[in-house]
Nucleic acid binder design. Structure first.
Lengths: 297, 297
DNA sequence: CTTTGCGCTTCATTATTTGCAGCGCTACTG
DNA sequence: CAGTAGCGCTGCAAATAATGAAGCGCAAAG
């Protein structure tokens, strides 16, 4: 859209960190870009960038402005999608960031379900830890985020929120696989595979261990739950995961047993959007469907 | 702001109802304006106006767009105000629509109180009935609305809400002035002054009377509470008002007595803003102060 | 101490926007 | 029922604004 051109250029400069680089990215000369920015700052009434010897950087006013720009363009997109919707076409693109646990079973099935009714809608799914997912929302790169243990709840609107107990994951004939419910201390007696601190489940583990005499002594710290699932088949090791990320009852090589909630708090799984934002139709509907599915879990 | 120019022109055309009129308003020629609009529609991907023989009118897509435009410009204003705030200056303008009852005592004292701390902030206060106040919010002409018995609550964010009983207003030595609490039927035995149906208190009266055998037989239907207050000093008449609009205990010519809540529901006084909107700093702070003051009432 | 990369400015050039005039159309008007 | 006024739209020349090429001064990096 033409009327946003200057704003988009500002965004490009903010990202590139220098006017000349941004100019190259946007296929114009640096002089033109330079003057557009000066022009804008003049009519805006305040500088937007700090001039550094090696480039530019947003100043506080610029940070405010860039936020406005993102909201702007995303809202315009929403309007266009809604207008397209008016003329009968059901199109759109839903972008969502989610925790790793959501990715293997839950999200694919829900997306497939949604697309059966709205085949014109496309999706963009990003797996992100909780901090990164929040960043995506803030930058309007994702419409939705479905994450465990979100951090800065006050900055977002919570569309739906449920809790899930932490499960231990182990080989099918692991000594602990006989019990129905496990104590955390029993698990820690075995080698254990835990994710790095940025991941929600690790946060809960750290909290829980903090109240105990025993310490967390991770044999392996691994980002990937996929990796964890395969590793525990070797070393009589224990992994941890939420049930939404497990194929409970339909995996014949692994056993999944819940940890006692006396030992470790259940995880909070929240569906978030940017505060106060009006989502595009497609995203809003998908969020709705997700909320219903979560409620049924 | 230059990058909004086309959008503002569209707004002008929507308001004027014809391109030529809008062109005159905006001091350009109709041909220039015409082509800007055509250009915009082209890149927008859909027409925004219906062409009528005597002018143009927004089509549904246009309605969506105009809403976006209003949100846009108001948000940009907010950013500018916030940037001004950054540079140390406490400036800004708060615009608020309120019910008539709020105007004589409550609003002036709260504004004065606020301005003692923020002398740079200016105010624009409009007295509106509940429907008109909601219109002002929707069109972004007012940041806030403080009204009795709002109608379409779902379209707005409720910042704060309290209830107030209905009071009868009468001459100091009116026969009913002796009692502590009045029954509605006793009031209706005297001539009564009521506002027109658009006003919140009338709505409550109509509701209450609907459950009774007696009918509302207004001697006078008057917009102005001011008028009502003066009139009841003549005809032994009864008027109705919420205590927030009365100088309870400090008026020596009138008596104010609450009606029994068994007869008539208390009025709901709500502080509203446009849904999902980020208010300018000044307005947000003032809303905050109002909410506190209402809670203390 | 040279080099590199930066923001910014000047000036001629190129796009873009504007105003003027006029066309065709439809709904009022006498 | 012709006349007229008001409308949206378009062609064309003039005015205005944005652009690119080149170069200046500056400060950090090598």
């Amino acid at each position: 859209m033409k009327h946003l051109q200057t704003l988009l250029l500002i965004q490009a400069v903010a990202q590139a960190g220098s006017i000349r680089k941004a100019a190259e990215d946007m296929n114009i000369t640096s002089s033109a870009l330079n003057r557009r920015i000066q022009g804008f700052e003049a009519e805006f009434g305040a500088p937007v960038f700090e001039r550094l010897p090696r480039g530019v950087r947003l100043n506080p006013a610029g940070e405010l402005l860039i936020q406005h720009i993102r909201a702007q363009s995303s809202d315009l997109e929403r309007v266009r999608a809604q207008v397209a919707d008016l003329s009968g076409v059901r199109r759109g693109r839903v972008s969502i960031s989610c925790s790793q646990a959501i990715q293997p079973y839950f999200m694919p099935s829900k997306i497939a379900e949604y697309r059966r009714e709205h085949p014109g809608v496309t999706f963009s799914v990003n797996v992100r830890d909780r901090d990164a997912a929040e960043m995506e929302l803030r930058s309007y790169n994702s419409d939705l985020a479905l994450v465990f243990e979100p951090r800065h709840l006050a900055e977002f609107d919570v569309i739906m929120s449920i809790t899930q107990p932490v499960y231990a994951v182990m080989e099918r004939n692991h000594p602990l696989a006989a019990k129905d419910e496990l104590r955390l201390r029993d698990c820690l007696a075995y080698p254990h595979v835990v994710p790095p601190p940025a991941i929600g489940i690790r946060y809960l583990l750290d909290l829980a261990v903090g109240r105990m005499s025993q310490k967390l002594a991770p044999t392996i710290e691994a980002e990937s739950f996929e990796f964890m699932r395969h590793y525990v088949q070797n070393d009589q090791a224990i992994g941890f995961q939420f049930p939404i990320g497990l194929n409970v009852g339909r995996d014949d090589r692994l056993a999944f047993k819940p940890l006692s909630v006396r030992d470790i708090a259940p995880g909070n799984l929240s569906l978030l959007q940017m505060k106060g934002r009006t989502l595009p139709v497609a995203s809003a509907r998908f969020a709705n469907q997700l909320a219903l599915a979560l409620a049924d879990l």
